[in-house]
Design a protein around this nucleic acid. Structure first.
Lengths: 147, 147
DNA sequence: TTGTAAATGAGAATCATTCGCAAAAAACAA
DNA sequence: TTGTTTTTTGCGAATGATTCTCATTTACAA
């Protein structure tokens, strides 16, 4: 069994949390995934490696990680949350109301604006939520979904 | 009884929706309020003028308005949504995790970034969600709530 | 005024998320 | 190792926000 420490594991451990099989698995899934997973899919993927894990544990784990700033939660236009390991460089999301596709983009101007605001108002920013919804080029043109 | 048409009423009517007493009241409350109301408080305020209105109708009304782009829904760090009539000039929110205060601010840089992105990628942007959470100056200094 | 499609009220249903508690597992000390 | 302590887990029940169902009412065009 792999006992290497991933960045997330190391950080968790350093903050005094216990490293359980369940947490290890959830973190692995989060690190390996390139998509934005919601709690349910995180749960099903985790179950492949830790069959007895419960949905509550998934929620508890992401809550801890979120509080530590290691992962971010997004709404992405749906009614339930999606999670993602916090990336090196911040990026944001556009969700198409037509086809549901999620496109990531970066926006240095926004990063700068946040930093300036924080300095000017003396704020400690913990999370930035910047997401756009609308219709993508394909759907505007009367795409596959025939909006 | 006031039969004048507010901007929201006019827009609703123009789009082919019926103007009911309940909708009129919900719209009035939304227009008069300077705060970000959640469905529950919208419901209680509306009941003062239309005592038999139901919570479901409040939800249905904001759903229609939201879809028409007349009001915006925000998370504001809580688990339920908050609503606000869409303002002339866009503005955004900072929610303090310490004292819960919500501060509005504008960010022309962000507006510009959105516009540029939309043009470059040929997107039709319907909603912009930009909100920050963290600790305000007062709470960082060990404010009233004693974080 | 009347006919009809749209909107409402009431409560049940749904869905995501959290809670409570006894049992299991980690961390730590001996 | 082994025992002790404390955290975490699993399970199912509870919660809270939002949506749905459906019989009844209402707006509004003719």
């Amino acid at each position: 069994m792999n006992l290497e420490s991933s960045p997330l594991i190391t950080a968790l451990q350093a903050s005094g949390h216990r490293i359980t099989r369940q947490r290890r698995v959830v973190l692995e899934v989060l690190e390996e995934s390139r998509e934005h997973l919601d709690a349910e899919s995180l749960y099903w993927k985790a179950r492949q490696r830790a069959p007895r894990i419960s949905l509550a544990t998934v929620y508890r784990t992401v809550a801890v990680l979120k509080q530590m700033g290691l992962i971010a939660e997004y709404s992405l236009g749906e009614e339930h949350g999606h999670f993602e390991a916090v990336p090196e460089t911040p990026h944001y999301h556009f969700t198409c109301l037509g086809c549901g596709r999620v496109v990531e983009f970066d926006a240095p101007q926004v990063d700068r604006a946040v930093q300036e605001l924080a300095e000017r108002e003396n704020l400690e920013i913990r999370a930035v939520q910047f997401s756009l919804t609308g219709y993508c080029a394909r759907c505007r043109a009367g795409g596959p979904d025939g909006r």
